[in-house]
Structure formats: structure tokens, C-alpha cells
């Protein structure tokens, strides 16, 4: 789980760097949500429930930000196909899948 969180945090941080110039506010949202993964990495291995909690909430947040960005592009009729959009969609999709998978571990 921690390996996945590390991958997602690195991807999210790269996304932040890619977006910072063009879409500053959205980039800061991505940075804040990437901290969810980062703090998950800092959780003790002895408590996997808390690590999973970070994976689940981080996943939901990235899905939300990806969905809203896609809707925004759609509304403006400006569907962008660049690296930052691809990374955002990737994080959103992985986030949704992992949130659905991880939620089974909670009551």
C-alpha cells in the first residue's frame, strides 16, 4: 500500500509542478490533496487501517478534482489533451478504483 501511495504522491507532485504556471489555483488544490498521500506514507506500518484511510480519502479527492476539471473543460468546449490532463485523469481513475477497493476494509 505504501508503494502505491509513494507512486501517487510523486505523480501528484509532478502534476502540481506542471500546472503551477497555467492553472495556479487548481495546482494548489492538487498539492494539498497530494499531502494526503504524503501523510499516509508517514503513518506507522503497524497500523494499516490508517494508511488505507489516507489511500481512500486521497483517492476520492483526486477523483473529485479530476471530474470537476473535466466538467469545466467540457462546459467551455475546451477539452485539453496534454500531459497534465492525462496525469490528472490517471490519478482520478486510480483514486476511484482504490477508494472502492479500500473501503471494504472499514466497518
Amino acid at each position: 500500500m505504501k508503494f502505491l501511495l509513494l507512486f501517487e504522491w510523486l505523480t501528484a507532485f509532478s502534476l502540481f509542478l506542471l500546472m503551477i504556471k497555467g492553472e495556479t489555483m487548481l495546482a494548489f488544490c492538487v498539492l494539498i490533496f497530494s499531502f494526503i498521500y504524503l501523510f499516509g506514507l508517514l503513518e506507522s506500518r503497524k497500523d494499516p487501517q490508517r494508511i488505507r484511510a489516507h489511500a481512500m480519502v486521497g483517492g476520492i479527492m483526486f477523483f473529485v478534482v479530476a471530474a470537476l476539471t473535466f466538467l469545466n473543460d467540457l462546459a467551455r468546449l475546451e477539452l485539453k489533451f496534454n500531459l497534465s490532463r492525462a496525469l490528472l485523469i490517471l490519478l482520478g481513475v486510480i483514486g476511484l478504483i482504490q477508494a472502492r477497493a479500500v473501503r471494504k476494509h472499514f466497518k
Binding site: Q49, A53, K107
Partner: peptide, 8 residues
């Protein structure tokens, strides 16, 4: 076990 609300 942690509940869903506690985890979030």
C-alpha cells in the same frame, strides 16, 4: 475496527 466515518 475503524469505521468508515472514523477512517475519513
Amino acid at each position: 475496527e475503524l469505521s468508515m466515518s472514523e477512517a475519513i
